[in-house]
Write a protein that binds this DNA or RNA. Structure first.
Lengths: 372, 372
DNA sequence: TTGTATGCGTTATCAA
DNA sequence: TTGATAACGCATACAA
């Protein structure tokens, strides 16, 4: 069944049917009704392939799914993906998946995807200093939004060689520093004075940001953070080792804020007294532990953790994208609604000129459980 | 750039270029080479939309992603999805996502997806008794494979009204009964004699299957399972309550096999002595607990659990699909390889006529940790 | 406001 | 073995 079938049944030309679908206001009310009836009676739906060939747009957005990897933190991007799929459907888009082992491979994937599918946009996750992906896409005028800020590369900006000012692009992010600050502040409020931090090695944008939340909070409380932080690659075992090291100092911290639930899990193991699990039971030396990401593991074992508003973040990404793709028109063609980012995530639109791309910084929330 | 660009450069007709791409054997070696050179020199890639319009095939497969839902078990389908995306790419396909709140909504989604995108196939997960989705798809000759067996509905098959024999379709599944049996057998070997089972309420195909693995293993060991099992909806709290109930009997079990990691987590909580976590520390009454799915939570807290070979299962699904879609030809058009299901999952091809659709039952493995 | 003609890039049919 | 032509379903420019 094609647009011609509908046209015959409604006794109009194909063009009129097309107009009813794409520019309803150009068709007389009566005719429009007749065509609409024919459409529903026939159960007609426009063929995307044909439409795409004509318009060059596919109503498809691509997002990367990480290679199979087990682990505590893997669920974060998955949850974002769930939210994104739902948000996309609400806006009349579909999500296509691709994999890539590293940023270079990801750019290859863009190339191959774009060559074949006329994708409307990409959603990028996990941005870092001087992200090559955004540069590649921007250069080719491919619409995209990043879940993660465009972290400026300090090395590059200090270089006189080139200004290296990346063109601004729409992004959504969660304020990690604020999340860690919330956790730290709460520990201060609970009476803790020696609060340690267990994070990732310096150099990762997200990791450094989270660490800064702890650092500045202690400083503004008049406390000295010196010597109270340790760094380790993300992971249970690594976290345990680093936490042991941190607890071995002369005056060990009474609480440890961690950059991830994995590290926090390791830290819990480290503070665990022989013969007992310390959470809320008073069975060992009470060291409060907080994690980051509020993964299922944290929920399961009662770990206090910073929760990212992933579904709202995904919805924001789609909103930003539809702003670009549908030229600022509110809502999709078939009248679905837009989510208001300011509603559920404590969203803050920041910076940029009013006509520039949207930038949304979401505030995470602290989920308090038994571990601290 | 189109096929015409390539044709001009190679000094052939468009059709010859098309033949080089789709039926290389029909083109003389010399010409083929010339065309191939032009293709690489130009970096030409076929436009999927145009190809799709002509052939009616999109090289797109659809799979459902569940609505955002936090929880221990959520990761299972996510991990399958990761594997499927990778396997699809290896076969020259892409994965498109959709959501649906229930089977009815899922069928609506099929309808809308099919109307718009000419999808090549669907991958269904979480089959249950008398699955309406498979019937709907089969009726319309839409290719699909299920991750999960086509459980026969006992109520329906006993009805004289209709034979209700579903047309056989390709499927891949993991032998849950065998996984639970492995766990149970290991506990028997370790000396346990009173082994309880904590599962889901009777009626769910997967749940009943897992329970049967425990039941038959105890029976064939000459033990009486009576009174040693409890049922609860999946969840931490529910598992804890049911486990307490199970441990309150006169002669309580010394080990509990659980149908999921969520339930197992609850059970761990139930057997936890006040003041200590019992895993491997001898701090309380030692009751061995095993879970199912080997989720990140299990890995994190040292829970023995049955691990499903999800990546191999996903690869099998794609193999079965390419068998149908590419008409049994080995490998995709561009010469990627097929994974051999018999390699990494302990695959067993079962039943069915040799010419019938493929059916693959994978064997899970037991990951032994401190909890039992 | 409605209808006609044309082209998007590809593959299938058929003739050379 | 290769090439010319038509057709897939839709949207756009333009004519009516």
């Amino acid at each position: 069944m094609t647009i011609a079938t509908v046209a015959r049944r409604a006794r109009v030309s194909r063009q009129t049917v097309s107009n009813v679908l794409n520019a309803p206001h150009m068709v007389r009310e009566e005719t429009r009704e007749r065509v609409r009836e024919a459409i529903t009676a026939l159960g007609y739906r426009a063929n995307q392939a044909a439409r795409q060939m004509r318009t060059g747009r596919s109503r498809l957005i691509a997002v990367r799914i990480e290679p199979t990897r087990d682990g505590v933190n893997g669920s974060v991007l998955d949850r974002f993906l769930h939210g994104l799929t739902e948000a996309a459907e609400d806006s009349g888009y579909r999500v296509m998946l691709y994999t890539a082992a590293d940023p270079g491979a990801e750019i290859d994937a863009y190339d191959s995807l774009l060559g074949a599918y006329d994708l409307d946009a990409f959603v990028l996750t996990g941005t870092d200093h001087g992200d090559a992906r955004t540069a590649w896409l921007a250069e080719r005028d491919v619409p995209f939004v990043t879940f993660g800020r465009p972290w400026d590369n300090p090395a590059e900006t200090s270089s006189p060689h080139r200004a290296a000012v990346p063109a601004p692009h729409p992004w959504v992010d969660v304020d990690g520093a604020d999340g860690v600050a919330q956790a730290t502040r709460r520990l201060l409020d609970t009476g803790h004075r020696r609060i340690g931090f267990l994070g990732w090695p310096a150099g990762s944008a997200v990791g450094d940001d989270r660490r800064s939340g702890w650092f500045t909070t202690l400083r503004s409380a008049g406390l000295d953070p010196t010597g109270l932080d340790r760094a380790a690659p993300d992971g249970f075992t690594q976290g345990e080792a680093a936490a042991r090291d941190l607890l071995a100092v002369a005056e060990p911290p009474t609480a440890i804020v961690c950059a991830s639930d994995s590290l926090a899990l390791g830290a819990l193991q480290a503070v665990r007294a022989p013969g007992g699990w310390p959470i809320g039971t008073g069975g060992g030396p009470e060291v409060a532990i907080t994690g980051f990401d509020d993964t299922p593991v944290a929920q399961a074992i009662g770990l206090t953790s910073v929760s990212q508003p992933l579904a709202p973040a995904a919805a924001c990404c789609m909103d930003l994208l539809t702003d670009v793709l549908d030229g600022g028109r509110r809502g999709a063609a078939d009248g679905r609604h837009r989510t208001d980012p300011s509603l559920d995530g404590g969203a803050v639109r920041t910076g940029g000129s009013p006509t520039g791309p949207g930038q949304v910084l979401l505030r995470p929330s602290l989920v308090v459980r038994q571990s601290g």
